[in-house]
């Protein structure tokens, strides 16, 4: 029972991490038809910015308490700015050339981790984890690491926040309408390109938050972390229906749990394999994914 609870919470925590990456990915894909291969780079940028601030380089920020919150906020802001720079500098000039957009993002996805390892080395750096998050919490008789609770809480807050943003605000309305029919929204006289920048900024912020929380979860950051998580985020996006935030949320729970349980109860590594095979199977059986459009 203890093991089951621990595995479930770990799986959900991992799923929460996937959700933070996948929600931005699926919004960008839904609106712009761009599968953003640079999303892992945005996550790494956020993770390194947070690590840099928390290691005492930013005045006021530190590894504990309010200082750590400030460090995470700094990481999120850096990730947002990086995403906006990516959209304005690389993606926007290639508007109407979707394949080149994918290729350019692949280039950015290769170049940014290389730059990060040039600056801070290619070895993993220890991430400063606050005392409050390094302990365990007793849940249903099992001792669960506290950071799992934090990750799940953050992902739930992001899910609710996204639904409110998409469902109750004008900007969200434009994004939802753009996902359904971009040409029609432009025809109605609304500048969809501003929505492009918005979803990129949003995606970058969430990916950076994922990077900071991923640092807490794994206890370290390395330049390739974002790229290796990106593949699982792709799985989540595809299984969740390519452009649906709710679908992505459901898919990341399934993927995280499947990965953890398969890794524990069968051979280590079989869970990772199962998830990757799941991606192929879902695409082949239901090319549109399991959920419908954005809801």
């Amino acid at each position: 029972m203890d093991t089951l609870v621990l595995l479930t919470m770990t799986g959900l925590g991992l799923g929460a991490l996937y959700f933070l990456i996948a929600s931005g990915l699926s919004l960008i894909f839904g609106l712009m038809d761009v599968l953003n291969f640079a999303h892992g780079a945005l996550l790494s940028v956020g993770a390194y910015a947070c690590w840099w601030a928390a290691s005492g380089h930013l005045p006021g920020a530190g590894p504990h308490g309010a200082g750590f919150v400030l460090a995470v906020a700094f990481g999120v802001v850096t990730g947002t700015l990086a995403a906006v720079a990516l959209e304005v500098g690389v993606v926007r000039p290639l508007y109407a050339r979707p394949r080149e957009q994918v290729l350019a993002n692949v280039g950015v996805g290769l170049a940014v981790p290389a730059l990060l390892s040039g600056i801070w080395g290619s070895d993993a750096r220890t991430f400063p984890v606050p005392d409050a998050l390094s302990g365990t919490v007793t849940l249903l008789g099992a001792r669960v690491p506290a950071n799992r609770i934090l990750l799940i809480g953050c992902a739930l807050a992001v899910l609710v926040g996204l639904r409110v943003l998409l469902g109750r605000t004008r900007a969200g309305l434009v994004v939802r309408a753009g996902v359904q029919d971009r040409a029609m929204v432009s025809a109605l006289g609304i500048d969809v390109r501003r929505a492009f920048t918005l979803v990129f900024a949003l995606g970058g912020a969430l990916a950076a938050l994922g990077g900071a929380l991923g640092g807490v979860y794994f206890g370290e950051v390395d330049p390739g972390q974002g790229t290796s998580l990106l593949i699982y985020a792709f799985v989540v996006v595809v299984v969740g229906g390519m452009s649906s935030v709710t679908g992505a949320a459901a898919a990341c729970v399934a993927v995280g749990l499947l990965q953890q349980f398969a890794n524990y109860f069968t051979t280590a590594g079989l869970g990772d394999l199962a998830v990757v095979v799941l991606l192929a199977v879902v695409l082949l059986v239901r090319p549109r994914g399991l959920m419908g459009r954005l809801t």
């Binding site: 690389v90 000039p93 290639l94 080149e100 290729l103 350019a104 692949v106 280039g107 950015v108 996805g109 290769l110 170049a111 940014v112 981790p113 290389a114 730059l115 390892s117 040039g118 600056i119």
Partner: peptide
Amino acid sequence: RVPLSQPLFLLGALFVVIVA
């Protein structure tokens, strides 16, 4: 020095420029 010491960074950046 940092960008020059990373071939993958230079090649990735060159690639983005070529694509664009």
